[in-house]
Structures are given as structure tokens and as C-alpha cells.
């Protein structure tokens, strides 16, 4: 009995699926850290009074949000790297770049929304005691805004994590790709895909639960 389970594709596929999951998490986490930096700049840029900064950031956000991420990654990998750079950038780097650029646009909106939601009086109170614009942002607006960003950022984590599955088209060894590799050899479609989905859920469901708790805590 135990032997039958151990020999089943559910268990046999696991070692390579775990490697895939590791890659999925790696791309998601690095991509989101870089995406947060990019998004913070773009989000603040969209709040800027400078027409040029504001315009560039708005174009970036709208273009990324208006096109599918699959097209974006193919663009980065096939067009930019093969045709213009003349060499293939590493697939993993292309994938991280795609998450960074894609999530950066959504995070820009998260940042903008959070900063915008802070009462105007906070800014005025800061300026009134003589703080500069930058100091007001740093000590008053940003600490309050960042709390409001946590729930939507967690949500973005879940979205980006699932988006990494699209990188199987450029043969990045993430979770879904590793599953496909496995069932191509074994034809165990059901078992493999079930395990793939369970592994995604093993990350996304706890994340959701933690988020809900944080949200409840921030509300009071």
C-alpha cells in the first residue's frame, strides 16, 4: 500500500515539481522586490506636478496594464534580447524582468492610491511645522501610506506568482514548466497537474489568510 503511494506519479513527480516551485518563488520574489522599487518611483511620478515625469510614468503604467503579460515577456525575450541585443539574455532574467515591469505598473497604482488616500491635512501639517516636501513624504505620508499598501501588495504577490506560469512558453524551469516536462515523459496528466495546482495553492491560500488577518488588524 505504502509502496503503491510512493511509486505513484503524485510522489514521483514531486522532486522536479519542488525545483519548479523554487524557481517560481525565486522569480516572483526578486521580480516583486524590483517591481516595488520601480512601482514606487512610477507611482510617485504620477503624483508629480512635473508634466514630463508624470507623462512618462502614466504612459508606462497604461501600456503595461493595457497589454497581456505573455506578450510582454515574449517582447523582452524574443524581440529586445534576440533582435536588438544580438544575444539571448538568460531566460530567468527575462522572466524576472517581465515580472518587474509588469508588477511595477500595478504597484505604481497601489502606491499612488495609497499616498493619495492620506488626508491632505497631514501634508499641510507637515509643511506648517517647517518640514520640506521630502521630509514630509518621508516622515509623515510614506509611513502611513505603506500600511495601506500591504493588502494590495499581498494580492499582487498572488497575481504575479500565478503569472510566472506563463514563462513556460520560453522554457523557464518554473513550476508549470516542470510539470509539463514530467507529463510529457510519463503521460500522467491528471496526477501531475493536480500536484502542480496543489503546490500553487500551498503558497496562495496561506498568503491570502495572512493578508486577511493583516487587513483586519490594520482596520482597527
Amino acid at each position: 500500500m505504502l509502496d503503491a503511494i510512493l511509486q505513484s506519479h503524485y510522489i514521483q513527480s514531486l522532486p522536479s515539481l519542488m525545483v519548479g516551485l523554487g524557481m517560481t518563488l525565486f522569480i516572483t520574489i526578486i521580480g516583486l522586490i524590483l517591481g516595488f522599487v520601480l512601482g514606487a518611483f512610477a507611482g510617485l511620478g504620477r503624483l508629480s506636478k512635473n508634466k514630463w515625469i508624470n507623462g512618462i510614468c502614466s504612459v508606462y503604467v497604461e501600456v503595461v496594464r493595457g497589454t497581456p503579460i505573455l506578450a510582454q515577456v515574449l517582447f523582452i525575450y524574443m524581440v529586445v534580447s534576440e533582435q536588438y541585443l544580438g544575444f539571448n539574455i538568460d531566460k530567468v532574467i527575462a522572466a524576472i524582468l517581465a515580472i518587474t515591469i509588469n508588477a511595477g505598473a500595478y504597484i505604481a497604482e497601489i502606491v499612488r492610491g495609497a499616498v493619495h488616500s492620506i488626508d491632505k491635512g497631514q501634508h499641510e501639517a507637515g509643511r506648517t511645522i517647517g518640514l520640506t516636501q521630502n521630509q514630509t513624504m518621508r516622515y509623515i505620508i510614506w509611513p502611513q501610506a505603506i500600511k495601506r499598501m500591504i493588502p494590495p501588495l499581498g494580492n499582487q504577490f498572488i497575481i504575479s506568482l500565478k503569472d510566472t506560469s506563463l514563462f513556460s512558453v520560453i522554457a523557464v524551469g518554473e513550476l508549470l514548466y516542470m510539470g509539463r516536462q514530467y507529463y510529457n515523459v510519463t503521460f500522467a496528466y491528471f496526477e501531475t497537474l493536480l500536484m502542480v495546482c496543489l503546490l500553487y495553492l500551498a503558497i496562495t491560500i496561506p498568503t491570502s489568510l495572512i493578508l486577511r488577518r493583516i487587513e483586519r488588524k490594520l482596520d482597527v
Partner: peptide, 20 residues
């Protein structure tokens, strides 16, 4: 202007304390 603002204290209708 930042220096001048320190000379002019202001109190608002809705307090605008820093909640954090």
C-alpha cells in the same frame, strides 16, 4: 519658506495630528 513657516504656527480645524 521652510524657515519662515517655523515662525508661523498653525492649528487646523481637524487637528491633523500624525496618527502613526
Amino acid at each position: 519658506i521652510n524657515k519662515l513657516r517655523t515662525k508661523v504656527g498653525m492649528v487646523f480645524q481637524h487637528f491633523n495630528l500624525f496618527p502613526h
